[in-house]
Design a protein around this nucleic acid. Structure first.
Length: 270
DNA sequence: GCGACAG
DNA sequence: ATCTTGTCGC
């Protein structure tokens, strides 16, 4: 698929100030409320068994009528300091229906807050290779949990006008409403905007989500940090990540994209 | 100047 | 993200 908003294509040649201005413009266009082309409850409830569900009706307006929604996992790996590989894995009803990958220059180093300008090129190249129409995409990193409410999931989601969610392993900014330690599997803690975020203080910009947890004493797993990218609410984003989890910390689309990115990295060679 | 910071 | 074997604890 191609960008619906070419003016938001991440341009690594912009100055830092211009990048930040672009992010504010993107955040203005972002929709942090549910506007999905499918019913969130129809996304396959994965579950440890790895067993799939039979699809019933599965669709709202717009998307893939009569079938369960297509959930896309997107993740990047690096061949070296100047080339990124983006891997995209599309799933429906818990099964992979397409996998594509693409390589593109990174152009700029990693700078907290500007991740989409480093990895965006590879991601866009990956989307050009994709033939199916995803209903929603999971990105590695933040969405609204970002200084200017425009993390990589929001940036790419708005540019493509594709519902999106950010799935990160650690917190970029914002403040958990309560302790995120000792959560049981399935539990979540709201992450609120603070002085570091453009949203009004106290705005719920995402959640710490315990997608997996050991049942015993010493030894625990840290929660995922989930935030809305575009056209999804913070609550539904967390619901969908849990629905797509299958016994691992990362939701299946993300876990498989992660795995595929490493595989592609070795295949592409140097 | 110091701190803090997705991947 | 990436460099990497064993190892501690489910």
């Amino acid at each position: 698929m191609e960008p619906v908003h070419p003016e938001f294509v991440p341009d690594a040649s912009l100055s830092r100030a211009e990048m930040e201005t672009l992010q504010r413009d993107i955040a203005e266009q972002a929709v942090f409320a549910d506007d999905l082309p499918f019913d969130p409850d129809t996304v396959c409830r994965h579950r440890e068994s790895g067993q799939q569900q039979l699809d019933e009706t599965g669709g709202g307006d717009g998307g893939n009528p009569g079938e369960a929604p297509i959930v896309l996992g997107v993740d990047q790996a690096f061949l070296d300091d100047e080339r990124a590989v983006s891997a995209l894995v599309a799933m429906r009803n818990g099964e992979v229906i397409e996998r594509v990958h693409a390589v593109a220059p990174t152009e700029i180093p990693y700078i907290p807050g500007l991740l989409s300008f480093r990895e965006g090129g590879a991601i866009l190249a990956g989307f050009r290779e994709l033939s199916v129409e995803p209903d929603i995409a999971f990105f590695d990193g933040s969405g609204r949990i970002h200084f200017r409410e425009a993390g990589i999931a929001t940036h790419i989601g708005v540019m493509l006008d594709l519902p999106s969610i950010g799935v990160a392993k650690s917190l970029l900014c914002g403040t958990p409403r309560s302790s995120t330690e000792g959560l049981a599997e399935g539990e979540r803690v709201p992450i609120e905007a603070d002085a570091d975020v453009t949203a009004p203080d106290g705005t719920v910009i995402g959640h710490a989500v315990q997608s997996r947890q050991y049942d015993s004493p010493n030894r625990h797993i840290n929660p995922l940090i989930v935030s809305p990218g575009h056209r999804v609410s913070a609550e539904t984003a967390a619901d969908l990540v849990l629905a797509c989890s299958a016994g691992y910390k990362l939701p299946e689309p993300t876990r498989l994209a992660d795995q595929y990115a490493d595989e592609a990295k070795k295949t592409v060679g140097t």
